[in-house]
């Protein structure tokens, strides 16, 4: 589904991604871990098309198409979704209107008619329940005055509504208490299917107790320095990242 080859990217003249290689196939759940500042959010930003990043080398193929050639909206319409680490507050744009616009723009792109209001509301209700998203927030301005947890739930709620092929969750778990984490994880699990894939960025292995990954990658200093299975996450939880950093530095000095 997604092939990242030797991806290099910079922001403000600073090299952040330094040769990422990653293959994500249908049905897979990939976890990306790594210390703060290692480039996890940068990777998701580059994939989603944030404009202040410049790709200097490498390529990304998404469902057979060159992802890097597409505008952010076309990436979303092609089935890519990124749940933001820091969702944006947009006063004056209602949550409901925003979602309806997004959903219908994606439908138009695929040659489908706009969704009937009734059908839209039904879908909204169903997906709200999935992540236990407070219905009162629907008519409020997008994320404005939402608590940290509400914002994160809103991201997953949007994910459920837009039904992408590949979902990137950037630290969706941080800011959630344990009950909320369980609900959100259960929601994500319900969305898993044989033709969808997930890339879950997290700091903590606790999320991975609920969302069991097929692969765990460690991103450090703009590169994937280690790939393993869910046991790797446990190991990182126990030992921290220092041993990995050392390994990397030893390799570099060889």
């Amino acid at each position: 589904m997604l092939t990242i080859k030797n991806l290099h990217a910079e922001v403000d003249g600073k090299q952040i991604l330094k040769g990422i290689n990653l293959e994500i196939r249908k049905g897979e759940m990939h976890a990306i871990m790594g210390p703060n500042g290692s480039g996890k959010s940068s990777l998701s930003s580059v994939l989603a098309g944030r404009e202040n990043y410049t790709v200097t080398q490498g390529e990304v193929i998404f469902e057979g198409k060159n992802l890097l050639d597409m505008s952010p909206e076309d990436r979303a319409r092609e089935g890519l979704f990124m749940a933001f680490q820091y969702p944006v507050e947009i006063p004056g744009v209602s949550n409901l209107h925003f979602l309806k616009t997004a959903l219908n723009e994606i439908r138009t792109y695929h040659g489908l008619p706009a969704m009937e209001s009734k059908e839209f509301l039904k879908l909204t209700k169903e997906k709200q329940q999935l992540v236990d998203f407070n219905a009162n927030l629907m008519n409020r301005s997008l994320n404005e005055g939402f608590s940290g947890g509400e914002k994160k739930r809103n991201e997953v709620f949007q994910l459920a509504m837009l039904d992408p092929k590949l979902a990137i969750l950037d630290e969706t778990d941080s800011g959630l208490d344990i009950d909320a984490l369980r609900i959100v994880a259960a929601g994500v699990n319900k969305l898993r299917s044989a033709d969808k894939a997930f890339m879950v960025i997290t700091h903590y292995q606790r999320l991975l107790e609920y969302i069991v990954p097929d692969f765990v990658h460690v991103l450090y200093n703009g590169q994937i320095v280690k790939t393993g299975t869910k046991e790797l996450a446990l190991e990182l939880e126990e030992k921290g990242y220092d041993w990995l950093k050392e390994e990397v530095h030893q390799k570099e000095s060889v």
């Binding site: 989603a48 098309g49 944030r50 404009e51 202040n52 505008s71 952010p72 909206e73 990436r75 979303a76 319409r77 979704f81 990124m82 933001f84 969702p87 944006v88 947009i90 744009v93 925003f98 616009t101 997004a102 959903l103 723009e105 994606i106 792109y109 949007q158 837009l162």
Partner: peptide, 13 residues
């Protein structure tokens, strides 16, 4: 720009 990117990242032109 951040708000604009947020909206576009959801498929809104």
């Amino acid at each position: 720009d951040e708000a604009l990117f947020y909206l576009r990242s959801r498929g809104i032109g």
